[in-house]
Amino acid sequence: MTRIIVERNFDPPISQDDLNACFQRIGGCLDLYGVRYIRSRISTDRRRSFCEFEAADAQSVRDVQSAARAPYERVWPAEVIGES
């Protein structure tokens, strides 16, 4: 399994309610696509976020975003450096 990063941009900045709704939809699709959610980071101005998943490939994660209607900029496999 590979770590996959999803980059998102929000203009205007995303509200907490919209973010929760997006994550709820994504959460509902994960099992189906064999994707495991790890964590997310959102910028303090709420315009950018990175979400980290674990999946067989980036396309599985893209399929989850698509199924959940969660917009994104890029999805790419990543190597983890520095995590204990």
Partner: peptide, 15 residues
């Protein structure tokens, strides 16, 4: 061949 290389970089294994 170029397109397959691109697909590999895109990491879409099922496709």
């Amino acid at each position: 061949e170029s397109a397959l290389d691109e697909l590999r970089s895109f990491d879409s294994k099922a496709r």
